[in-house]
């Protein structure tokens, strides 16, 4: 095995899709991103939990769209031309997350990712998988699996 291959195995490179929320940059594993859609009308679902904005029709399939700002305890904001719905796959489900904008895909070595001490007791603190400083910008890497609890994932599967 060559030295490069060994290095790659020890320190794998991961691709992260970067999106913006409230002027901060967040990264999600690109392998979990199915597609990125322009903002389209989201049909509200009566009785849905507050973190669910509603549903969209994606080529005949119903996809639940989550209110990412609400999940991240951020204030509500109006949609803009940059607003996107990122279709992701997590916990064997396909859901959409509404974000302010989608920026780019970056390559990060595992060693570049720093864990952060979890000083918060709030649920949203658990989403943070790590942070990374790239191109003079702090990227907050999000663990999509932890975006919701098991019960919540079960709950939205019913839509």
């Amino acid at each position: 095995m060559s030295a490069n291959a060994t290095k790659s195995a020890e320190d794998p490179i991961l691709q992260w899709a970067i999106f913006r929320l409230e002027n901060e940059s967040y990264g999600i594993n690109v392998m979990q991103v199915q597609e990125v859609l322009r903002y389209t009308e989201i049909a509200p679902v009566p009785g849905a939990p507050p973190y669910v904005l509603g549903i969209i029709n994606l080529r005949g399939n119903v996809v639940t769209v989550m209110d990412t700002r609400s999940r991240f305890a951020l204030p509500h904001a109006e949609t803009t031309d940059q607003t996107r719905i990122v279709i992701i796959e997590a916990e064997n489900q396909v859901v959409g997350i509404l974000v302010d904008a989608v920026a780019e895909v970056v390559y990060l070595r595992q060693s570049e990712i720093e864990t952060t001490p979890n000083v918060g007791n709030e649920e949203s603190a658990k989403f943070i998988q790590g942070v990374c400083h790239k191109n003079d910008e702090l990227l907050i890497l999000v663990d999509l699996e932890k975006l919701m609890t098991d019960e919540e994932w079960m709950e939205i599967s019913g839509f």
């Binding site: 918060g120 709030e122 949203s124 603190a125 658990k126």
Partner: peptide
């Protein structure tokens, strides 16, 4: 200083 979500 970049704030992190869910912190005290």
């Amino acid at each position: 200083v970049k704030p992190l979500i869910g912190q005290p």
